[in-house]
Amino acid sequence: MIPGTCAREKEVAELLRSGHWPQACSLELHAHVGGCRACGNLILVTETFQRARSNAAGMARLESPGALWARAQLRRRNAAIERIGRPILGAQIFALAVSVLVAAGFLVLQFRQGAPWTSWIKDFPRSLHLEALWPSAPPTFDGHLWFVVPLLAALAVLSGVVAYVASEQE
């Protein structure tokens, strides 16, 4: 037993819980509580807290349970979607990593073989027949990448913008 406690605390607590204190309390217990510090503390604290509870409960501003229910459904749905999306994101990262590795391997292999595809890049502008689209273009740009590279870059940027706008509209 903790020093300072009283053996009759349980009895008093039971009376307080059932609402029988002090009306249904024996005179003898009443007299005991009058002189017992521990039981007095118990009664003081319990009555104060019970009063505070009923006062505070009346001050509560309750939200509609329907709104809470709907928000909980939304949260659960978002959690489910996130849970499903997690492996998809993982698969995308894995696919990207594999693609980068394959591309890097291919480039290394090509460079080791003397990079035969560089001649293909040199011939690429000619294969596009860009001179036909550009009447006043200088007739001799074959083999020069100075014109093709900015053009391709512009095309890439433009297609990126178009793709972004299209996805935004969706």
């Binding site: 505070a56 409960a57 509560a60 349970p65 229910w69």
Partner: peptide, 22 residues
Amino acid sequence: DSEEFAGFYERSARSLWAYLAR
């Protein structure tokens, strides 16, 4: 279900608020 929750909410919300506020 939502109706059962509404009932439980009515019975418990005030005492929970009192606990949190105090």
